[in-house]
Amino acid sequence: MTRTPFVCAALLAAALPWAGAAEDFWHRGAQDAVGGRHLLKADQAFQLLGAQRQGDAVIVQWNIAPGYYLYRKRLRFDVVTPADGRLDAPALPRGEKIHDAFQGEAEIYRGHLKVALRWPPGEDAPQRLSVAYQGCAEVGVCYPPQTQLVDVVDLSR
């Protein structure tokens, strides 16, 4: 009975080095952590919520995971359908300003991002969009530019 605590402690002593070894094995085998933080794939970090027509605008929204950000200047929207469709220059919300030696002044978005797109008067509303974006994780890893085709859901009907 009195030996139980000692046996437990001894087992703990034996197990701890192996726990460390297992941790190292997984970190060295599959590299998806930086600074001890597991990194998401781009589509998980920057979750594009789709495009919805609301009145005379199409609203495109993202949920940006905590610890990640999108660059304002890397957002791009093009009409895929109709083939001759066009968009006005998007009125992008102001972002958080950052400065970098290579990129200069830049604006970034964190959290939730909502962009309203409009099209020239008299032209057909966009039904399908190509949406491009690019961002980074704050731990110092950046993701390649992403492009997604999204169908516009018309909520105004």
Partner: peptide, 13 residues
């Protein structure tokens, strides 16, 4: 024994 065991564990790690 508890203290000795814990010390050994920390030392091993």
């Amino acid at each position: 024994f508890i203290v000795a065991g814990l010390v050994a564990a920390l030392a091993g790690y």
